[in-house]
Simulated scan of single mutants.
Amino acid sequence: MDNYQLESELQHLERVLGHLSAEHRLPLSYWRNRLNAVVAAQLVPSQRTRARKLDEQLRTLEARAAAVG
């Protein structure tokens, strides 16, 4: 992924994960795969920080989904 794609993907994930619930119609694994693709790329420090925050948000959602299970 080039820097433009990474930035676009981070912005999209920030918007979506901010409004996502554990019962969203797309499985959380879909969002996990998209985030993992971003994390696997070469990120600058500010992008790594943003990706870590997204990971924390998604982990919280995944924990809630498991509890509701």
Rank of each mutant, 00 (worst) to 15 (best):
55 D>P: 00
8 S>E: 15
31 W>F: 12
36 N>M: 05
42 Q>G: 07
31 W>G: 01
61 L>F: 02
49 T>E: 12
1 M>E: 12
2 D>F: 10
63 A>P: 02
6 L>H: 09
12 H>R: 15
16 V>T: 13
16 V>E: 09
67 A>Y: 01
14 E>G: 04
44 V>W: 08
29 S>D: 14
33 N>S: 13
52 R>E: 15
16 V>P: 00
14 E>R: 15
54 L>T: 02
35 L>H: 01
10 L>M: 09
55 D>N: 12
67 A>R: 05
29 S>H: 05
53 K>D: 10
50 R>A: 13
3 N>S: 14
24 H>E: 11
16 V>D: 03
32 R>K: 14
20 L>Y: 03
67 A>L: 11
62 E>C: 00
25 R>Y: 10
60 T>H: 14
13 L>Q: 05
40 A>E: 11
8 S>R: 14
2 D>V: 11
16 V>Y: 05
62 E>P: 00
24 H>R: 03
47 Q>F: 07
39 V>S: 05
64 R>L: 14
12 H>L: 14
7 E>P: 00
64 R>C: 04
29 S>P: 00
25 R>I: 10
19 H>V: 06
67 A>V: 04
7 E>V: 04
41 A>E: 14
4 Y>E: 15
20 L>D: 00
16 V>N: 06
49 T>H: 10
65 A>S: 09
58 L>A: 12
5 Q>K: 13
24 H>I: 04
54 L>R: 08
43 L>R: 05
58 L>F: 04
15 R>Q: 11
31 W>A: 04
18 G>P: 01
42 Q>S: 12
6 L>F: 07
15 R>G: 00
65 A>W: 00
21 S>Q: 09
52 R>N: 15
38 V>R: 03
45 P>F: 02
26 L>C: 06
65 A>D: 07
13 L>A: 08
46 S>I: 08
4 Y>C: 12
69 G>C: 09
25 R>N: 10
37 A>C: 03
52 R>A: 13
11 Q>W: 10
53 K>Q: 15
12 H>C: 08
43 L>W: 07
18 G>T: 08
1 M>S: 15
57 Q>H: 11
35 L>W: 00
25 R>V: 11
18 G>W: 08
15 R>W: 06
23 E>P: 02
66 A>I: 03
8 S>A: 15
42 Q>W: 07
59 R>E: 13
8 S>I: 10
6 L>M: 12
56 E>V: 07
45 P>M: 05
30 Y>G: 07
35 L>G: 04
9 E>M: 14
65 A>T: 01
40 A>S: 13
22 A>I: 02
44 V>A: 10
46 S>M: 09
35 L>R: 05
3 N>T: 13
38 V>P: 03
26 L>N: 10
3 N>K: 14
28 L>P: 00
22 A>P: 03
51 A>E: 12
10 L>C: 08
5 Q>D: 12
60 T>N: 12
47 Q>T: 06
32 R>C: 05
41 A>T: 06
1 M>A: 15
3 N>V: 12
5 Q>C: 06
33 N>E: 13
56 E>H: 08
58 L>Y: 03
5 Q>E: 14
61 L>N: 03
24 H>G: 06
20 L>N: 01
24 H>L: 03
25 R>E: 13
49 T>W: 08
11 Q>Y: 09
15 R>I: 05
56 E>I: 04
38 V>H: 02
49 T>M: 10
55 D>V: 01
57 Q>W: 07
12 H>S: 13
7 E>Q: 14
42 Q>P: 00
67 A>G: 05
17 L>I: 08
